[in-house]
Design a protein around this nucleic acid. Structure first.
Lengths: 327, 327
DNA sequence: CTGAAAGCGCTTACAG
DNA sequence: CTGAAAGCGCTTACAG
């Protein structure tokens, strides 16, 4: 039960000054005599000393906290990113503070300000939305890694996948399977990720001789991707020109599409093939009818923290695109 | 862009001492002359002063941080609890630190210690596992609210549902629907919640004249509830004595059960009715075949924070059981 | 090789 | 009604 032991406690027990203890605790061994080092380490051990991060933060002007500002924790993909980042940060000796902005710019700014006040040593921005505070953050050159959605302000480290390539892969797949009536469903006001997935899909189709007009593009608005998918289904699945293959830029959109398809008496994938980009593990349990490009969200944490550490060391870190699995 | 303004900055601008500014900033208006108060508030406004939480924490011996120690963020229910708690804490002026223990006692203890060092003002323990550190926490009388799983050490504030009643409700439902072959599936090494749900179910059946032996009890081990459900399905759905109604103590177990049922050529709910206790919103999209007792996870945050605030004020807070919806 | 001292930003008895 | 001073726990030039 490590009680409130401070540097002073250890110093008294070891018969040295707090300065000396501080140095040794911080690994500056060479500046002290071996005998002193031994005595101090023994005392540290004996009283169970652990540096107080608050005192340290105040002096250094920087805490061991890292802020994760996420758009929506209820999204399983975000939850997995949060979970893996938290684990990687802990490994590196940091503590993650989680802020859920619910996609609202004012809330995002409120958090950005609160985290600055907490003297966090870095920011992880998952699907950040444009906001004044975000611009300031970029301008301040604070250590930040953007995830999924690139910095709307342009520059900044990024961890994600090659979204355009993912879309293109699906285009190739559909063509090679002989699909004739293609559709793509995406949120109208989406992230850079959604946009890039859809445009990568369309671009590849164009390359392979398809006219843009031949492809159903269903952009959706709405509270959730589930709803966007459902609504798009309402438009797509009626009439005789229903598609025989659909790219959904997220799993949740695909869930919504499937729900509507069922209501229309359509069976996926028999009547219409559906491919999404996400591939969360839940799919195999509740959506075996869904084919996906699997984004390795569980690996994001390690990459994000590696990126932060590079930035802290002053090394360059542009972007890290993780490989996806299709199948 | 609020720069690094300290009390000193404000004091200088207002022509008073930092003590005075500190008092006024902390709402102790009555101790200063109206003129001074006005001057100070004006200066605070002008320079955009915001108290530095780190300095404050060091002095007070307590930060504005609240630790949420959760067993597994990948579980959507936990993610919703985390999200709603985070929102409620922010509202109350606190910042949530998220720790994911992956159900491992050593990790839980590591976090408990780290959070103590951060001088957090409270602990939210979601599905905590027994551990030495947890016992110490209880003994230390630190402000803590247990969620879903009660304090394994006995005492402690609790937010959750009436698990036994939930189980009993399902028992009544099955009997009233004329079901004849009942089963219940739960994790062998489960939380108090899982246990209580199953035992509440069995107890009510007993009350209504059912012999325990007449009910299939499938306790499962495994990494995930999904897997537990799947494995239980492998045992339950074979042979001629398959149940016609199953209580699954969580949605994820139900997903696993359904997957296995499909493989056996069974259709839920036609061949076998399945009821789970959780009722996450995703169900209506991907598991319309699943009937659930809906736990209002989105409301947990407010209750948890209300509980913490009572405890901080020294008021008693035993437990808060939230009402569920069945349908 | 080691320590005294200053100071990070804040709060709070205490004195006036 | 207001301020000087001490101190929360730490780090870091600086002096010796």
């Amino acid at each position: 039960m490590p009680e409130d032991v401070s540097l002073a406690t250890v110093a008294a027990r070891a018969g040295v000054s707090v300065s000396t203890v501080s140095r040794i605790v911080n690994g500056e061994m060479r500046r002290a005599s071996p005998a002193t080092v031994a005595r101090v380490l023994e005392a540290v051990e004996a009283v169970g000393y652990r540096p107080n991060p608050v005192g340290r933060a105040l002096k250094r002007g920087q805490s061991q906290l890292v802020a994760m500002i996420a758009a929506n924790l209820d999204n399983p993909a975000m939850a997995t990113i949060a979970s893996s980042t938290e684990a990687a940060l802990r490994e590196a000796g940091y503590v993650m503070v989680l802020c859920d902005t619910h996609d609202r710019p004012e809330l995002q700014d409120e958090y950005l300000e609160a985290m600055r006040a907490q003297m966090v040593s870095g920011y992880v921005l998952v699907a950040a939305v444009p906001s004044p505070g975000l611009s300031e953050l970029s301008a301040s050159r604070a250590p930040a890694v953007f995830v999924n959605r690139r910095n709307p302000g342009g520059s900044g480290a990024f961890v994600g996948i090659d979204d355009r390539a993912a879309g293109a892969t699906v285009a190739d797949y559909f063509i090679d399977r002989g699909r004739r009536a293609l559709a793509v469903v995406f949120p109208r006001l989406g992230s850079s990720a959604s946009r890039d997935r859809a445009s990568g899909f369309l671009a590849r189709l164009r390359e392979r001789g398809w006219a843009d007009e031949a492809i159903i593009q269903a952009a959706g608005d709405g509270r959730s991707h589930l709803q966007i998918g459902y609504d798009a289904g309402s438009r797509i699945f009626v009439g005789s020109d229903a598609p025989d293959a659909i790219l959904s830029v997220s799993d949740q959109i695909a869930y919504g599409l499937n729900r509507r398809a069922l209501e229309c008496g359509l069976k996926i994938p028999d009547d219409c093939e559906l491919v999404s980009i996400d591939g969360t593990p839940l799919n195999q349990w509740v959506a075996p009818w869904l084919k996906s490009i699997e984004i390795p969200y569980a690996l994001y944490g390690a990459e994000i923290v590696a990126g932060l550490q590079l930035i802290w060391r002053g090394a360059p870190f542009g972007e890290r695109l993780l490989p996806c699995k299709f199948g």
